[in-house]
């Protein structure tokens, strides 16, 4: 892969400590986010995608820690910083937060302090990172609130979060995350807690802003439909590991990993109306986090399971098209055979 990345996650491993025992919940994750592109991280709940997103800003909670790998970020002075090496409570990471990497959270209801006004909480970010006086900050805040589609921002700025609806709060959250023009915006399931109609509006807003400000976007979701609308690249996560990764069109049209295929089959299609096709759920459920299998994590639920192979080692990465990589023994095997054929 080329070097024109904005953020590059290399071999990231994150562990959870429970009663003196340590469990890795994210293992060997590699991601490359290019400037101005939307990168989507997809997975079921508990797959570790939120953990990965929090680790980029070093916001992991108690008992969760990065135990290996690198998170390389190219800051506005074009210097490369390894975020893993920073102190999670130190000045350097604080200078990156919101100023260069902004973040939106899943629950718009609880991501604002209920006893401070919206304006207070957004202006705070301005004062932290931009050199503006109070009046200018307020003006900028009102502009931003207007930009994210809040009606009557002059009034809204002095309102409290509980006076806002969920959609309005998420808009305010977007305003708070983007007020300093970050180069990367991390959005952790920004629409999950919202109504479907509001979801569409928020997605459109994010897409528009992303185009306008030419910002990269790490978009976390479990919703393939949403991904199809918004993303350029996508990585599928399962039990803390990436199983398939590539340009979104490639993956949607030509999924290779059985898990990805399963996910796509589980989505209803308009075209299926009247055709009496049943939705196919993926058999079984996500295994206990503490009982990580040795081989491919999906082996226990996989319909194409190969005994003594899939339950032994985690498959190597196989590049089946430009930038499209899969971690599956089947794909590996097929690829090897093809190569053999070519060689002969």
């Amino acid at each position: 892969m080329s070097d024109d990345y904005l953020l590059k996650v290399e071999d990231l491993t994150i562990s959870l400590d429970v009663d003196n025992a340590s469990f890795s919940i994210v293992e060997g994750v590699n991601l490359t986010i290019k400037a101005g592109r939307v990168f989507a991280l997809v997975g079921e709940s508990g797959s570790g995608k939120t953990i990965v997103s929090l680790s980029i800003l070093r916001l992991l909670g108690k008992g969760v820690s990065i135990t290996g790998g690198k998170i390389l970020f190219k800051d506005d002075q074009a210097q490369t910083i390894d975020i893993v090496k920073l102190n999670s409570k130190g000045k350097p990471i604080q200078a990156i937060r919101a100023a260069q990497i902004g973040m939106i959270f899943q629950e718009p209801m609880s991501s604002f302090s209920p006893v401070h006004t919206i304006g207070n909480q957004i202006e705070e970010v301005i004062h932290l990172h931009l050199d503006l006086d109070k009046k200018q900050a307020r003006q900028k805040c009102i502009e931003m609130l207007g930009k994210v589609g809040i009606v009557n921002p002059e009034r809204a700025i002095d309102q409290y979060p509980f006076e806002f609806s969920g959609g309005m709060r998420q808009r305010a959250m977007i305003a708070r995350a983007m007020i300093c023009n970050p180069k990367l915006l991390i959005a952790d399931e920004p629409t999950t807690a919202l109504d479907v109609t509001i979801q569409a509006q928020i997605l459109k807003l994010m897409k528009d802003l992303q185009n306008e400000l030419n910002m990269a976007n790490l978009f976390i979701s479990h919703n393939i439909g949403v991904i199809a609308q918004i993303a350029d690249d996508v990585a599928i996560m399962y039990m803390g590991k990436i199983v398939e990764q590539g340009p979104v069109r490639d993956i949607l049209r030509n999924p290779r990993h059985p898990y990805t295929k399963g996910l796509l089959r589980a989505i209803p299609h308009l075209a299926d109306i009247g055709r009496s096709r049943r939705l196919e759920p993926i058999a079984g459920s996500v295994p206990n986090l503490y009982e990580r299998p040795n081989g491919c994590p999906f082996a226990a639920r996989c319909s194409e399971f190969i005994e003594n192979i899939c339950d032994r080692d985690f498959p190597k990465s196989t590049e089946i098209a430009t930038d499209h990589t899969v971690f599956c023994h089947h794909v590996e095997r097929d690829q090897n055979q093809q190569n053999l054929v070519v060689n002969i």
Binding site: V18, D19, F23, N288, Y290
Partner: peptide, 14 residues
């Protein structure tokens, strides 16, 4: 083994 034991006790809680 230690981790497995822990896991077992957690499993038992489930």
């Amino acid at each position: 083994v230690v981790a497995a034991k822990k896991a077992k006790s957690i499993r038992r809680l489930d």
